[in-house]
Computed example of a mutant assay.
Amino acid sequence: MTYCVAIKLNAGLVFLSDSRTNAGLDQISTFRKMIVYEKPGDRFMVLLSAGNLSISQSVREILQIEKLKDNDDSDPITIWNAKSMFDAARVLGAAIRHVYDRDAAALKQAGVDFNVSLIFGGQIHGEGMRLFQVYSAGNFIEATPETPYFQIGESKYGKPVLDRVITPHTPLDEAAKCALVSMDSTLKSNLSVGLPLDLVVYEASRFQTDKVVCIDENNPYFKMMHNNWGVKLREVFDSIEDPTWDDGKTEVPLIQPPGRSLPLRKISTPDEKLI
C-alpha cells in the first residue's frame, strides 16, 4: 500500500510520499513513488503515484515521451513543451490511457484490476501553480482554495490533521510539518505504509527547488516530531475533563438533550418476551 499527500498554498507546494509496497506479508519492498520533472527557469513538476506498481512505473516512463495532438495541424504537446499545467495533465492522462490500451486486457485475464492513482502538480512559466489528482481513466480534478490538498493511498489516518491545519495561507514550513504529522499518523496506524519518505517543498515562481529530502528512521527531525507529537497529543487529551452523567462537576456535563430520549437500553417487563 502507500500514502502520498500534496498541498497547494499561496506560498508554494508541498509533496510527500512513503516508499513501501507489499504483495503479502512476506513480500514487502521499497520503491520510490515520487518523481520530479524540472527545467530550471521554465517548469517544475512533481508526480506522486499509488496503486498497482507495474502500472504506475509504466505511466512514469511513457509520460516522458508521450505526445498529445489536438488536431492534425497542431504541434505535439509533451510535458516538456506544454504551455500550461492543464495541458501537462492532459498528457499524463494520455499516458495512462496508453498503458491501459496496451496492458488492461492482459491484466484482466490474470485477474488484476487496472488500478492507479496519481497526483500531479507544479508550475510552468507564464502561469500560477496548479495541482491535480488523476484517476485510472486519465481524467482529473484540480485543487481549489476550498480543497487545497490531495491524498492518494491510505488517506484516512492522515486526513484529520490536514483538515484542521491547512489553508491556502499556511506557511510552507508549517505545511511541510503538517504533512509529516499526517504521514506519522498513517505510519502509526497502518503497517502497509513505511519509511523512507520523500519530501519536496517548492517555493512559488522559482521553477526549481533545493528542498528535496529523503527521510529514513535515523532522520533527527522526524524522530523528534514523532516523539513530541505523541507526547503532546496525550497531554491535550489528558487536559480535557472526563464526561459526567448527571449534574456533575464539569461545566459541560454529558446529559440527555431536553425533549429527546436516547434508546440505548431497554428494560424488559414480565409481560415482554426477550429475544
Rank of each mutant, 00 (worst) to 15 (best):
V59K: 07
R60G: 14
R60I: 01
E61D: 07
E61G: 02
I62E: 13
I62A: 09
L63R: 03
L63H: 07
Q64E: 14
I65K: 14
I65D: 03
I65Y: 09
I65W: 05
I65P: 00
I65F: 09
E66C: 10
E66Q: 14
K67P: 00
K67M: 12
L68D: 07
L68A: 04
K69S: 04
K69W: 00
D70S: 06
D70N: 11
N71W: 03
N71C: 11
N71D: 14
N71Q: 04
N71Y: 11
D72W: 02
D72H: 05
D72N: 08
D72G: 02
D73G: 05
S74Q: 05
S74C: 05
D75A: 14
P76L: 13
P76N: 08
I77P: 07
I77E: 09
I77Y: 10
T78I: 10
T78D: 03
T78M: 10
T78E: 03
I79N: 06
I79W: 00
I79A: 02
W80F: 14
W80I: 01
W80L: 07
N81C: 13
N81E: 09
K83N: 15
K83I: 15
K83M: 15
S84L: 12
S84F: 12
M85S: 02
M85A: 08
M85C: 08
M85R: 02
M85L: 14
F86T: 13
F86C: 02
D87Y: 13
A88C: 02
A88N: 06
A88I: 01
A88D: 06
A89R: 05
A89M: 01
R90Y: 04
R90A: 11
R90I: 04
V91E: 04
V91H: 05
V91N: 08
L92C: 02
G93T: 05
A94F: 07
A94E: 10
A94H: 13
A94R: 11
A95K: 04
A95D: 01
A95F: 08
A95H: 03
I96W: 06
I96S: 01
I96D: 06
R97P: 02
R97Q: 10
H98L: 06
